[in-house]
């Protein structure tokens, strides 16, 4: 069976146009730093270019990019833990957004695994099954994390609001 031709290398530009903001939001929530988020998005798209994966659907492509971005963020977090330098707040000041900053701060104060599933579910509106594929866990584990994350977020938001 003949394989379809590889995607052109400049399809990363199209991916950046389509998924750039989604990836950036995910990386920003995960890393809590705009410079690191930019690096993670860039690494994700460079890997997309190098691997030139073939996708059956757009959803498949989006899931691949989200999973890769998640892995890049975890790499960056691991690097941070092993190479502590400046305090996080000093190195990466909080971005200026027009939105309710307390909600964002509350979300970013949660542990990484809850931040990830909450962002994918409520912001990117992925289904539980798709999130399970991205984070390589079972759908029931995703549901558990969503439930626990909601509780933690509520508590953190109330604390921020006070």
């Amino acid at each position: 069976m003949e394989m379809p031709p590889a995607q052109p290398a400049n399809s990363a530009e199209a991916a950046l146009a389509r998924y750039g903001d989604i990836l950036y939001r995910l990386c920003f929530v995960m890393l809590r730093c705009d410079a690191d988020a930019e690096d993670a998005v860039q690494e994700t798209l460079l890997q997309y270019l190098r691997r030139a994966p073939r996708f059956e659907t757009a959803e498949h492509e989006k899931a691949w990019l989200l999973a890769t971005a998640k892995n890049k963020c975890r790499d960056a977090l691991r690097y941070r833990r092993r190479h502590p330098t400046l305090p996080q707040d000093a190195a990466c000041p909080a971005p200026e957004t027009e939105s309710d900053g307390a909600v964002l701060q509350a979300l970013m104060s949660l542990p990484e695994k809850y931040r990830l599933v909450l962002t994918l579910y409520y912001v990117e509106e992925l289904r539980v099954a798709d999130i399970a594929r991205v984070i390589q866990r079972t759908p029931s584990a995703v549901k558990m994390r969503l439930q626990k994350g909601r509780q933690l977020l509520k508590a953190a938001y109330q604390k921020e609001d006070l």
Partner: peptide
């Protein structure tokens, strides 16, 4: 509210 808050985060 959560979606609105995070949606405001955009790539510069």
């Amino acid at each position: 509210l959560l979606k609105h808050a995070v949606d405001q985060v955009r790539m510069p």
